[in-house]
């Protein structure tokens, strides 16, 4: 439905209080007033109305912070990050070393609050140290995938033509392969280590970003302000990074939070299958080793499983919150 009034009306409403405060005295008698044809028109009062409208970024932040789910997600993620940072201080020893009697249930021994596994390794130490690898892989794989995906997507979307054709073929090659199978193959070929796992996850996740970025760039490339930038003689790099990218970012940011979650899940899956780095403990490998004992000592799979569930949930909540905050259709109504 089209109505021309509603769009204007938001700014009108926002300006209401401001304009009321800056009441300008009425011009004196009409005869003395300047003939309006000679007046300049710097709509001075609407300037004041403009002052109360917050900028895009700040409005988005406000919307994000007013969303309890997003706040919970952020708080939990911060908690996980802090845990990952202080894990070596709390448990300076190798979490893979055997420190106690095996099969201690949580609460049985106060030295091991979450119990021990079949080899007598501390479960709490494992979960704390496991958060390091999960976060490392999740964040690094996303950062790499994001960088490469944005570069490919923006190049394809901005230049179009044969460059676009070639890059789209490349993206399609990756997207037609079942991604988890590809991941397993990649890790199996390389030596499994945190670095190779990260790289492998990045390799299977960049095409999504590239497609998204390309679509955004193709749409924004046609906008008048980009045409204006071209008419002013700006170079390609400036147009891509200064004019288009900042406007293409919101959906990419939203996607990237979900990408971190997906990467964490993939790392866990790999470790569960025994394809992770054998030298470090991760949530996935803990579930993997506890798998056979799930009937007798279910806590060995349940506890690292909960860690994964909550972290991934937190990231998804953040993603939803970002989506609401950065999507103007939602933020307009508030």
């Amino acid at each position: 439905m089209s109505t021309t009034d509603i769009g204007n009306f938001n700014s009108l409403a926002a300006g209401r209080q401001a304009a009321a405060e800056h009441e300008v005295p009425a011009p004196s008698a009409a005869t003395d007033g300047p003939a309006w044809s000679n007046m300049k028109a710097p709509d001075a009062r609407s300037q004041q109305s403009a002052a109360v409208v917050i900028t895009n970024g700040r409005r988005a932040l406000k919307v994000f912070l007013s969303n309890p789910n997003a706040l919970f997600g952020t708080a939990f993620l911060c908690f996980v990050i802090i845990v990952a940072l202080i894990a070596p201080i709390l448990y300076p020893d190798d979490p893979l070393s055997m420190v106690g009697r095996p099969f201690l249930w949580p609460g049985q021994n106060s030295a091991f609050p979450l119990g021990t596994d079949s080899l007598g390794r501390d479960v709490l130490a494992g979960i704390l140290h496991g958060s390091r690898i999960s976060l490392f892989v999740g964040l690094m794989a996303t950062a790499l995938g994001l960088t490469f995906g944005v570069l490919v997507g923006s190049t394809a979307g901005y230049f179009g033509g044969w460059i676009d054709d070639v890059l789209v073929r490349l993206i399609e090659i990756f997207q037609t392969l079942p991604s988890f199978v590809l991941l397993v193959v990649l890790v199996a070929i390389a030596q499994p280590s945190a670095t190779t796992v990260t790289l492998a996850i990045a390799i299977i996740s960049w095409p999504t970003v590239a497609r998204l970025t390309r679509a955004e760039f193709r749409a924004i490339r046609e906008k008048d302000y980009v045409v204006a930038a071209r008419s002013l003689g700006y170079g390609h790099a400036r147009i891509i990074f200064r004019e288009i990218l900042p406007n293409a970012l919101p959906p990419i940011i939203v996607t990237s939070s979900v990408m971190v979650a997906t990467a964490i899940l993939m790392e866990s899956a790999l470790s569960f299958m025994g394809l992770g780095d054998p030298n470090v403990v991760s949530w996935g490998s803990m579930i993997g080793t506890g798998r056979e004992l799930v009937r007798t000592a279910w806590y060995l799979t349940a506890l690292p499983g909960l860690a994964i569930v909550f972290t991934v949930l937190a990231l998804n909540l953040i993603g939803d919150g970002l989506n609401d905050a950065l999507n103007p259709r939602f933020s307009q109504d508030r």
Binding site: K223, V227, A228, R242
Partner: peptide, 17 residues
Amino acid sequence: SIQMIFQDPFASLNPRQ
């Protein structure tokens, strides 16, 4: 030496600058 003024004043300015 040659410049352009656009029709839509809402679309011709980058909203993030």
